[in-house]
Amino acid sequence: MNADQPEDDQENQCDNFGGKLKGGDDLNTDQLIKFVHGEDKVKVNKLLLLPWDDVLFPYILDHLTWKDLYLLRSVSRSMMDLVHCYLSSLLVVDLAKIGKRFTLQAFGVLSANCYNLRILNLYKCKWISNDLLQNIIEQNPHLTHLNISCCLSVNNNCLQRLAINCKGLKSIQLKECCWTNAIAVAHLALNCPLLEEVDLTSCWEITDDSAIALVIRCPNLRRLSLSNIYGITDSVLMNVAAQSKNLEYLNISGCWHITDYGVRLIGENCKKLERLEVFGCSEVTERSLAFLRLRGVKIDIQPPQRPRLTLFLRHAMGH
């Protein structure tokens, strides 16, 4: 990393770069690319002499799009080193909004240079390969949040590697990862006791036993989704009620075997519950939901409408 420059010298070099480093205006990335492509190498070298961590990263690179960042990387060896060093400093990588346009090659650059990540969001990055995902997991042992929902080209080896390597994991989102099996979830339960948020929506192979192991081993759960896992029964809810005292959100929609008994236990024991989703649970009725509604818990299905008093009176009077 470059040594800090004298304060006056830093100010002059910022002025030479159009004043953008002072944070007054949005960075014009086209001007930046033209600048570093220009013939005046002295100015480019002055730019690189600025403190990277304190100036270049927060005031320039943080404002670039991924496309511009990769364009900058391609300009010269010095710019490549700058971008790679920037990538190594990142705590968050969120590709959820641009995942469809990202490529394996571009992610390969990320996985080779990111090793301080805390949050990695790869939602709907269907192109991600098993090897690349395992590589970035292995290089980031301090990862706390991982979202690989709708990633269909990876397998349970990644989850087992995650469980072994990232024991401080707090959030794992696996929505529609139908390849997820009970053994992988058991590994997560055994190795990641700090988990607070788990989304297993449509992970059909999850069993009662693996879900119960997760609940017992992870007492700090605040958000849990077991939606559309058709084999889940009241046995899981019994353990949730006994173990998950901090639970705020529970999604069991589409779990056909859940009944009023399990939901009633949740209502009686999970005092911090704020939202419950039970759409499609045909055995769950107002017998268990009414108490939760009185507590102010938001539920995804509306209560049955009460008959109007006038209609009741007419019926009672025989009209």
Rank of each mutant, 00 (worst) to 15 (best):
Y70V: 03
A290L: 10
T201L: 07
K298A: 14
G99A: 09
D81M: 13
R217W: 03
D9Y: 11
W52L: 09
E205D: 13
K22N: 14
Q173S: 12
V75D: 00
S76N: 08
W256T: 12
I60G: 01
L195Y: 04
F291C: 07
E274Q: 15
L313R: 13
R308L: 14
K170D: 00
Q139C: 11
A3P: 03
L49Q: 15
E277H: 10
V109H: 09
D40Q: 09
L132E: 11
R222V: 10
Y86C: 06
K298F: 09
L276F: 13
L169E: 04
S153F: 10
C151G: 02
R275Y: 07
L188R: 03
F102R: 05
N181I: 07
L48T: 04
R287N: 12
D81K: 15
H63T: 07
L309C: 08
K245S: 12
N181F: 11
L49F: 05
L122M: 14
R118S: 13
K170A: 07
T65C: 06
P303V: 10
L72V: 15
T65G: 13
N16S: 12
I136Y: 11
F35P: 02
V297N: 04
K124C: 10
V154F: 08
V236P: 03
L90P: 01
K41T: 13
L32P: 00
G19Q: 08
D62V: 06
Q160W: 01
I212S: 01
D30R: 08
I258Y: 05
C158A: 15
G262F: 02
L69D: 04
A163C: 03
A189E: 02
I172L: 07
